[in-house]
């Protein structure tokens, strides 16, 4: 038996909306520690890792580890039916291949029950090493989204360079070139407005912009985003979900042969 209750159905809806274009099918692994999902996109260039800790739920019960394979577009269809302030309860048991989503209005006057068919998904899990990164940049998530969208109109790839003074995003294409330079900014009223650059050694990496633009669909989930880079390693783009976990996106770099 698995049962979990979230104060805001809208949170899970937003999470699924932010990843469903990248991964259409995925298996949620449920255990006493929470709900986790790891999946590669169809081209096997990027990876999504979602972690929702059990202590971030209002109620969480998982008698034993349990896998729930879901089509995320179908899941999104159902979650869209939740009211803005509805609570969400998820229920599933191993006896039937269904997960139930219960949407309850704040005054308990409306209770909607949606049952989603579970599916068997063959996927391979990758072991992500706990690496030290050469550079870590935290910046407002809206700023990162603007940068990747703006550069996406100029070129297909972005070259990200981190030095101790700034982080540069550069793109070039048929119509010309663009460089956006962000300096460290610590003296802000709100902590989420800061741009923080932690550099062990300078890095310079090239990535396909369309994936980064896709990752930035998660912007509404967190006011700030953390970007971790090491030479010739996948970049990590992390959105922290307050009090419950994170969504991390990994993207393999483009490397000269």
């Amino acid at each position: 038996m698995f049962e979990a209750q979230m104060a805001q159905a809208a949170l899970l809806k937003q999470i699924i909306e932010s990843i469903r274009e990248l991964i259409t099918e995925a298996t949620f692994e449920v255990s006493g520690t929470g709900m986790m999902l790891q999946a590669m996109d169809s081209s096997h260039v990027s990876l999504v890792a979602l972690n929702l800790r059990s202590d971030g739920f209002q109620l969480f019960r998982a008698d034993r580890p349990f896998s729930m394979g879901m089509n995320l577009n179908h899941m999104a269809k159902m979650l869209k039916c939740a009211g803005k302030d509805d609570t969400l309860t998820m229920r599933a048991d191993e006896a039937n291949d269904l997960v139930t989503f219960l949407f309850e209005s704040p005054g308990n006057e409306r209770l909607a029950e949606f049952e989603l068919k579970l599916m068997d998904i063959t996927s391979e899990n990758l072991g992500i090493p706990d690496a030290e990164y050469s550079a870590t940049v935290s910046m407002p998530s809206a700023e990162f989204q603007r940068i990747v969208k703006d550069l996406g109109s100029i070129g297909d790839t972005v070259e990200i360079t981190v030095t101790k003074d700034d982080v540069r995003f550069a793109a070039s294409g048929d119509i010309g070139n663009a460089t956006i330079k962000c300096r460290q900014l610590l003296d802000t009223e709100k902590p989420e407005d800061r741009t923080l650059i932690e550099m062990v050694e300078p890095v310079n990496l090239t990535f396909a912009l369309r994936y980064l633009i896709n990752f930035s669909k998660a912007t509404s989930l967190a006011p700030s985003v953390t970007i971790k880079l090491s030479t010739e390693m996948p970049v990590v783009v992390e959105y922290k979900l307050s009090d419950i976990g994170y969504v991390r996106f990994y993207l393999a770099p483009k490397i000269e042969d």
Partner: peptide, 14 residues
């Protein structure tokens, strides 16, 4: 031109 790598070439299969 730099070539796109696959993600599994960096992270080991489990």
């Amino acid at each position: 031109q730099p070539q796109q790598r696959g993600i599994s070439s960096f992270f080991g299969r489990q």
